[in-house]
């Protein structure tokens, strides 16, 4: 039996969501990447995630809190590494769910004048508004420490 060290990067009960994600989602953090050039400096990155999300429950006044939706998140971006210690990432993320499109099972609703087009236009507008852009700069600074130092580290990583 091995007892692991208690060093933890998660932020604890006061930010329990982070804690749970780190403990239980064991999928790799790194995204897939495609080299765009032969020199391994420029990569295309991204992923697609689709799933069902729902709530079944009751509010404090006894009313129903139920809802169900299909969600999709698509991300695409570029990772540029001009130097082995410097990385620049730009990424676009689009999130959309089935409720954005107000999908109706009734055929009659689509046969009404403008019914389908209105729903489609509204959904696309919401999608475009939901696009998020992320820019990140990672800079790794090597450090030199003496053997007597109580801290064993050979670099500092700065992320902006």
């Amino acid at each position: 039996m091995k007892i692991r060290s208690v060093i933890s990067s998660y932020t604890g009960l006061c930010h329990s969501a982070s804690l749970i994600l780190i403990l239980f989602i064991n999928t790799p953090v790194l995204n897939a990447q495609i080299p765009l050039t032969d020199n391994d400096k420029l990569f295309l990155t991204g992923d697609i995630r689709t799933g069902y999300f729902g709530i079944i429950g009751e509010n404090r006044d006894g009313s129903s809190a139920d809802f169900h939706e299909i969600r999709n998140r698509s991300r695409i971006g570029i990772r540029y590494t001009p130097h082995q210690r410097v990385t620049l990432q730009v990424r676009y993320a689009l999130r959309v769910n089935s409720r954005d499109f107000e999908l109706k099972c009734s055929l009659l609703s689509y046969l009404q004048p403008g019914g389908m087009l209105t729903s489609l236009y509204s959904g696309i507008t919401k999608m475009l508004r939901a696009i998020r852009t992320g820019v990140r700069l990672i800079w790794i600074i090597p450090i030199h420490h003496t053997h007597s130092s109580p801290i064993s580290a050979d670099h500092i990583m700065i992320t902006l």
Binding site: G46, Y52, R71
Partner: peptide
Amino acid sequence: YARLTYRF
């Protein structure tokens, strides 16, 4: 919830 993720 249930979701599927594909990294291209």
